[in-house]
Design a protein around this nucleic acid. Structure first.
Length: 727
DNA sequence: AGCACGCCGACT
DNA sequence: GTCGGCGTGCTC
């Protein structure tokens, strides 16, 4: 295509699309390129940003070879990041181009930020000295540079005063470096007063950071044990070493409260990174992380793919949280990939949680991680007193879901003018609606799941694919009027029941259905903190990120929900979630209570919650996983086949199944309809792979899919190594 | 993942 | 007669 004489050499370039390997591009004579350079290259009909990869460019037919069109004035993507991208692609069995794409998610950041126009004194004197001019000159006399409007504002004059002075040559224009997105954190700013136990753990973490080199630490501390303050000491140590720090938080936990605590300790806020960051801000953060101006990032899982050049510590807070698992495009768990990133970068990683994942506990037991335990809450804050309510012995009234025991506790809490939190992890009014006459059940037309009644919206809603329809008066099957019955509770129904029993109490429902988005949620939380509500009925939303200082009673409406869904992690998840919810209370020094409604009070989850001792529960779960050869002892993977129509998806899944490579240690189950049978208008089927030992399941999948017929039509295949959720 | 090219339904 | 829906195929 282009005359060869114009091309110096051929280099591999990773482009942001599902390419299995880098593409080859010619380097024009005189263009300076190194591995990691971020470049603009022609790709089909458009131009995209890619990264120059390592090694030699592959030989490619001259007719296909095109040339790099531009090198961005941007720090090259560090070798560590390129290695990390290759590693993640290999592990997740995804095209490396798609992983690289995650690291290039700030298109406008590759060009330097435009400098801010500033002004500075030249030394020349103005012809006349008016009072306004005098104020301006006094402020500027130390030779410091100002922005035009900044100086005018500071001096309390209009900007035409400044313009006049510029005109006379008193000020000259200079380019100021772009404004940093955040101030520099100061590791010595506000050292917290730590207890001796906390101090010991903090000292160990500081030591690890100080030594340098890779290490993985599980920081295990109950809610209120000061985990955050303790790992802040590790952050301080890394900053003192001149390294950058990444703190990962589950998306929802990225709250004002965390940022404030960070500010109290370091005198500045960390840079934030999450999916709904404004594009302009996003670009600034990306650029300043690459340039090393930003020293600490607090972010959601995608922050792992920021182009840090001096990263020296990763903290994964609430490491057990399922939000660390990405389940679209590239399926990865940011907690696990953080450990990999730390090993590649040769620096420490800290996994923190009050309820560590079973995987992390086993890794600690096997000596791969060091486990540091913070056993006690601050002296003045007692752990909540948690009791199970046996629903067989204390059943609710017919048509109700709250047992007399819980109602009595709520009543007493109201009498004391304290607050109650009721937790039910189910949105809407009722999870199932049926016709009392013919038995018709309302089911989603796309998925196989029941439609959830949302009484407030007067709709039946599918919680899997978002499909919704108005709730009819008559049964669509038999036509009978007014005989549709809601079955089971959602938060709306619990709130209704509360209103019935306590008509004078101020009740708030908190779920993702709350209209008004994050802003409204923040307002509601504030109102609750100010004591403007007596009873809060909430879903999962209340489990994370935000504490309710005034809550002295937490009621779990249905602790058994989620225990019987076939997910091998169901018990662990339930324990973690309920522990977290009950931990929201009891921070005020008041005596607080957690009441757990269950039909199986003997269940290990309930016993662990009631006793506050998770060791026996975890030991049992570990044994169960070991026996069944489930992660972390064995391996699981899913192959998800999706297509526009059900037969298409199922048909290809069957073809894939027939092509299964023989490996005695790997079982293939399915195809079966995938847990979320329909997503974004596509039908999904799943093959489940199980190896009872830590087999190289990736090689197996590669060999297998290579043998299988190519996906035809709209069929797409996605691979999920160790699916972390089965719902 | 984008994007263009290509072939079938309702309209300026 | 066109505009536009999204199925299909390609990108060094």
């Amino acid at each position: 295509m282009s005359p060869e004489s114009n091309i110096e050499r051929v280099v591999p370039v990773m482009v942001p699309m599902p390419a299995e390997r880098p593409y080859s591009y010619g380097v024009p004579v005189g263009m300076h390129i190194e591995p990691g350079s971020i470049v603009r290259v022609p790709l089909g009909p458009r131009e995209v940003a890619g990264v120059v990869w390592d090694g030699e460019g592959e030989l490619v037919p001259a007719s296909k070879l095109r040339r790099i069109s531009h090198v961005f004035d941007c720090p090259p993507l560090p070798a560590e990041m390129r290695k990390f991208i290759d590693w993640v692609a290999n592990y997740t069995v995804s095209p490396p181009g798609m992983v690289a794409r995650m690291a290039l998610r700030a298109p406008a950041a590759f060009d330097p930020e435009p400098p801010v126009e500033g002004i500075r004194l030249t030394g020349l004197q103005p012809d006349r000295l008016t009072p306004a001019r005098r104020r301006v000159l006094e402020l500027a006399e130390n030779g410091q540079a100002w922005t035009r409007s900044g100086l005018a504002h500071a001096a309390g004059v209009s900007s035409s005063v400044i313009d006049g002075l510029i005109e006379q040559g008193v000020f000259e224009h200079i380019d100021l470096p772009a404004q940093p997105v955040v101030a520099q954190p100061d590791p010595g700013f506000g050292r917290a007063q730590l207890t001796p136990e906390q101090e010991a753990v903090a000292a160990r973490l500081r030591e690890k950071v100080g030594q340098g080199g890779y290490s993985a630490t599980l920081l295990d501390g109950v809610t209120g044990s000061g985990k955050t303050e303790v790992y802040f000491e590790a952050v301080a140590a890394a900053l003192e070493q001149g390294r950058q720090v990444l703190i990962l938080l589950p998306e929802i936990a990225l709250t004002q409260a965390f940022l404030d605590r960070f500010h109290d300790r370091f005198g500045a806020r960390p840079a934030e990174w999450h999916s709904d960051l404004a594009p302009r801000k996003r670009e600034k953060v990306w650029r300043q992380v690459a340039e090393g101006q930003v020293r600490v990032v607090a972010g959601a899982r995608s922050a792992l793919f920021l182009p840090f050049s001096e990263l020296g510590l990763i903290v994964v807070d609430e490491e057990h949280d399922p939000a660390y698992k990405q389940e679209d495009r590239v399926f990865y768990n940011a907690r696990d990939m953080s450990v990999v990133r730390a090993r590649i970068g040769n620096f420490p990683v800290i996994l923190a949680s009050a309820t560590p994942s079973l995987e992390s506990r086993v890794n600690a037991e096997q000596g791969r991680y060091e486990r540091l335990v913070l056993p006690v809450r601050f002296a003045q804050v007692a752990m909540p007193d948690i009791r199970a309510i046996d629903m067989r012995r204390s059943p609710p009234q017919p048509g109700g879901f709250i047992s007399p025991a819980l109602l009595e506790a709520i009543s007493q809490t109201l009498a004391r003018k304290e607050q109650t939190l009721l937790f039910l992890n189910r949105r809407g009014y009722a999870p199932l609606t049926l016709c009392r006459v013919c038995g018709h059940r309302f089911q989603c037309e796309n998925c196989s799941s029941w439609l959830v009644e949302h009484r407030f919206r007067k709709q039946l809603v599918c919680h899997h694919c978002g499909h919704h329809e108005p709730r009819p008066e008559a049964c669509p099957e038999c036509g009978t009027l007014d005989h549709l019955v809601p079955c089971g509770p959602g938060v709306e129904r619990i709130a209704e029941e509360i209103d019935h029993h306590f008509p004078d109490a101020r009740t708030i429902i908190l779920s993702s259905d709350l209209i008004g988005g994050v802003k409204r949620l923040r307002l509601e939380l504030e109102a609750i903190a100010n004591g403007e509500a007596d009873i809060v009925v909430g879903t999962q939303l209340v489990a994370k990120g935000h504490n309710f200082p005034g809550m002295t009673l937490v009621g779990i409406i249905d602790a058994d929900l989620g225990l019987s869904n076939g997910d091998p992690r169901a018990a662990e998840r339930t324990f973690q979630l309920l522990h977290q919810v009950t931990g929201r209370a009891g921070r005020t020094g008041l005596k607080s209570t957690g009441l757990i409604q269950t039909y199986q009070p003997e269940h290990p989850v309930m016993k662990a919650l009631v006793s506050g001792d998770a060791e026996a529960f975890y030991a049992r779960e570990v044994e169960e996983r070991r026996r069944a050869g489930l992660p972390p002892f064995g391996r699981l993977a899913s192959i998800i086949v999706s297509a526009g129509t059900k037969p298409e998806a199922e048909g290809y899944a069957r073809e894939l199944r027939r092509a299964a490579a023989h490996a005695p240690e790997i079982d293939v189950l399915g195809p079966a309809e995938a847990p979320m049978a329909m997503v974004a208008g596509r039908h999904r089927f799943r093959l489940l792979l199980h190896a009872s030992r830590r087999a190289d399941i990736q090689s197996y999948i590669r060999a297998w899919t290579a043998r299988a017929p190519k996906p035809r039509g709209s069929v797409r295949v996605q691979i999920d190594i160790d699916p972390q959720s089965f719902l």
